[in-house]
C-alpha cells in the first residue's frame, strides 16, 4: 500500500492535533454507537410498551443471555486475532450433554464441570494447533471442530437428558435478591466475572496486547519478539474454555443436556461480536462491545415478545439488517483511515 504522505513535514504539531481531535473517539466510536443503539431501543420500547421500562427487563436480558455473553467473550479473543471459531455452538451442546450424562451417572456437579471445561479446552487446543502449526485456515479447522463436537454429542446422547442433580438445579434456580424487589441469578454473576477477567487480560497483560498485535500485523508481532505462537493457539483454547463455561451456564438455564441444543449459536456469537464493533479482520474491538452486542440481540427478542403481533422471524431479519448496517459503517470507517 502506498501511503499518502510518507514525507509529511511538521510531525509534532499535526500528531498532537490529530490525537487530541480524532484518535480516542475513533477507537471507541463503534462501542459508543452500539451503546447508543441499545439505549435508543430501550427508549423506543419504553414509549411503546407498558412494562418495558421496568429494570427487571434489563436484568432478565442478562439472565436469558448469560451463556451467550460468555460465548461472545471467547469469540472476541479469536476474532481480535483475525480468526474465527465456528465450533462454539457445538461445544456448548457437547458440554450440556457431558454435564447431563456424568451427573446422571452420579458424579458430583463440580467434577462434571471440571471434565466439561477440560474437554472444551482440549478441543480448542487441537484446533489452535492445527491453525497455527499446520496453516489450516481457522474457518476449516473450526468447521471440523463443529462437526466433531456435534458428532460426539450424538454418540453420548441421542435424546434429551434432563438434569436431576439436586445441588445443580438448586444452584440454577437460586436467585439473588437485589434492592427494590429485583433479582438476578448466579449465572449472570459468573458471566460478568468472566467479562471482567477477559477485559483485564486483553487490556492489561502482555498476552492481551499480543492478541491485538497479531490482529494488527502478525509478522510484525513475531519480529517484535511477542509470544505469537502461544497466544495464537491460546485464543482458541480461551474460546474452547468459554464455550465450555457457556455450555455449563446453558445447562443451568435449560436443566438438560441435548445434542440439538445451541444449533447455530455460533452465528449469534459472531453477530454479537460484530455488532459490538469488533472488526472481523482483527486488531480492533472490545469485550464490552461484545456484551453490548449480545444485549442488542436480546433486546430485539424482548421487543418481539412484548409486541405480541410481530412474528418470530423478524428477529432473524432484524439481526441481519443490524449486521449489515454495522459492517457497512465499519467498512467506511476503515476506508477513511491511512
Amino acid at each position: 500500500m502506498t501511503t499518502a504522505d510518507p514525507l509529511a513535514p511538521a510531525v509534532a504539531g499535526s500528531a498532537w492535533d490529530r490525537l487530541r481531535g480524532f484518535a480516542p473517539p475513533s477507537r471507541f466510536l463503534p462501542v459508543i454507537t452500539t451503546f447508543a443503539l441499545l439505549v435508543g431501543m430501550f427508549g423506543a420500547g419504553a414509549v411503546r410498551y407498558p412494562g418495558f421500562s421496568d429494570p427487571q427487563v434489563v436484568l432478565n436480558l442478562f439472565i436469558d443471555n448469560s451463556f451467550l455473553i460468555v460465548l461472545a467473550v471467547g469469540m472476541t479473543f479469536v476474532i481480535l486475532t483475525g480468526g474465527i471459531d465456528l465450533s462454539v455452538g457445538s461445544v456448548v451442546a457437547l458440554s450440556t450433554v457431558v454435564a447431563a450424562r456424568t451427573m446422571e451417572a452420579g458424579w458430583p456437579p463440580l467434577v462434571s464441570c471440571v471434565l466439561v471445561i477440560l474437554i472444551g479446552c482440549t478441543l480448542g487446543l487441537l484446533m489452535g494447533l492445527a491453525i497455527h502449526y499446520f496453516d489450516v485456515q481457522p474457518f476449516i479447522a473450526t468447521l471440523a471442530g463443529l462437526f466433531f463436537a456435534r458428532g460426539l454429542c450424538f454418540l453420548l446422547a441421542g435424546r434429551p437428558l434432563p438434569i436431576h442433580n439436586k445441588s445443580f438445579s438448586g444452584f440454577a434456580e437460586a436467585s439473588i435478591s437485589l434492592p427494590g424487589g429485583y433479582y438476578t441469578t448466579w449465572a449472570v454473576v459468573i458471566a460478568l466475572l468472566i467479562v471482567a477477567v477477559a477485559a483485564f487480560v486483553l487490556h492489561r497483560t502482555l498476552v492481551g496486547r499480543t492478541v491485538y498485535a497479531i490482529g494488527g500485523n502478525e509478522t510484525s508481532a513475531l519480529l517484535m519478539g511477542l509470544p505469537v505462537a502461544r497466544v495464537k493457539v491460546g485464543v482458541y483454547v480461551v474460546s474452547g474454555l468459554c464455550s465450555a463455561l457457556a455450555g455449563l451456564l446453558f445447562s443451568l438455564y435449560m436443566l438438560s443436556g441435548y445434542s440439538l441444543h445451541a444449533v447455530g449459536m455460533e452465528l449469534d456469537a459472531i453477530a454479537a461480536v460484530v455488532i459490538g464493533g469488533t472488526l472481523l479482520t482483527g486488531g480492533r474491538g472490545f469485550v464490552v462491545g461484545s456484551v453490548l452486542g449480545v444485549l442488542v440481540l436480546g433486546t430485539i427478542q424482548t421487543f418481539i415478545s412484548f409486541d405480541g403481533t410481530l412474528s418470530s422471524w423478524w428477529t432473524k431479519i432484524a439481526i441481519g439488517v443490524l449486521l449489515l448496517a454495522f459492517v457497512v459503517v465499519q467498512r467506511l470507517v476503515v476506508r477513511r483511515q491511512p
Binding site: L267, T281, W313, T315, I317, G320, L323
Partner: peptide, 20 residues
Amino acid sequence: IQPIIATLVLMTAGRGIAML
C-alpha cells in the same frame, strides 16, 4: 466487505425472509 461477513448477513436474515 469481506465475503464471509457479507454473506453472513443473508445467512442470518435469509431464513427469516423465507419464513416471512
